[in-house]
């Protein structure tokens, strides 16, 4: 699938004016072919600039439920920014992002689009998990406290209940015995696995991974990728920014290549990684051979 194909695939909704974003979402559902299923993420002509620099120049992307999509591209291509726009850590300047049919960061009423209140944005983020390059665990809390914090504080679970779920998740990422440790007592790979468990504790419908292995020593990358592979196998919808081509090949349902704030190519791993149509994709991938 080439960039042109993407345009065609998302054609129905990009053609309609923004005022009918809801219908566009419905159109997108139709485009996937599976009737009744709302796509997990629908990004339409997303634009974002930082001062003079236009980082995102009209991103169109659709992620189906249960799909694992890997975003590839050189640094500065806007992958991470785009990911951060999906849970509104960055506010987009134009276009729109829907997650499960809900407009992110804004609401429509009376034919106009309004900014959401911070409280409402906060609420939207509950269902979207995010894993960061630098883990960003809370260093003053133990591993268990890190995982329990949001379920208790945000979802209002009882401490006992949250602890039980947290221990299950820590067991799943292989770190149950580290529950009482502080993050700085762990290796980078272990910290990132805790960060994944912490995000999963909110039972997200969508997980965003922002270069989850880029800050790790090479020998620690494997354990984190294994954890992610495990999640993908369980059918979690994942959007992953990474430079791990091997992971993309093995796990991704779809690979999206971005450069200069645009999606240049999208398709199955075989299509994009083995026989890239775009010369810039080819140039980028040649560096990994």
């Amino acid at each position: 699938m080439t960039a042109q194909d993407t345009q065609e695939a998302t054609g129905p909704e990009t053609a309609v004016p923004e005022a009918t974003a809801a219908e566009a979402t419905a159109g997108a559902t139709g485009a996937t072919g599976s009737a009744g299923e709302v796509p997990m993420v629908v990004a339409q002509r997303v634009r974002k600039r930082f001062g003079q620099l236009e980082v995102l120049r009209g991103i169109d992307l659709k992620v189906r439920q249960g799909e694992v999509v890997v975003l590839l591209g050189p640094s500065g291509s806007g992958k991470s920014t785009f990911l951060r726009c999906i849970n509104h850590l960055e506010q987009i300047d134009a276009g729109s992002i829907h997650v499960e049919g809900r407009l992110i960061g804004f609401r429509r009423s009376g034919g106009r689009v309004h900014h959401l209140r911070p409280r409402e944005v906060t609420r939207q983020r509950r269902d979207i998990g995010m894993v960061f390059q630098h883990f960003n665990l809370f260093p003053h809390q133990t591993v268990l406290e890190n995982v329990v914090e949001a379920p208790v504080g945000v979802l209002g679970l009882s401490k006992a209940e949250a602890r039980k779920t947290a221990m299950e998740l820590l067991t799943r990422v292989g770190l149950a015995e580290k529950a009482a440790s502080y993050p700085r007592q762990l290796s980078g790979g272990q910290q990132q696995r805790v960060a994944i468990a912490r995000a999963l504790a909110m039972r997200p419908k969508l997980m965003l991974f922002d270069e989850p292995t880029s800050a790790l020593d090479p020998e620690l990358v494997g354990e984190v990728l294994a954890t992610m592979r495990d999640l993908a196998r369980d059918g979690l919808t994942m959007l992953v920014v990474t430079h791990e081509i091997g992971f993309a090949k093995e796990v991704a349902d779809r690979v999206v290549f971005m450069d200069g704030g645009q999606v240049l190519e999208t398709g199955t791993p075989q299509e994009v990684l083995d026989s890239p149509a775009n010369p810039r994709t080819r140039a980028f991938l040649s560096r990994f051979l």
């Binding site: 850590l89 983020r125 509950r126 995010m130 665990l137 949001a150």
Partner: peptide, 11 residues
């Protein structure tokens, strides 16, 4: 990053 991680958790 601490604020961002907490915000991403819906806090």
């Amino acid at each position: 990053g601490q604020t961002e991680a907490a915000a991403a958790l819906g806090m």
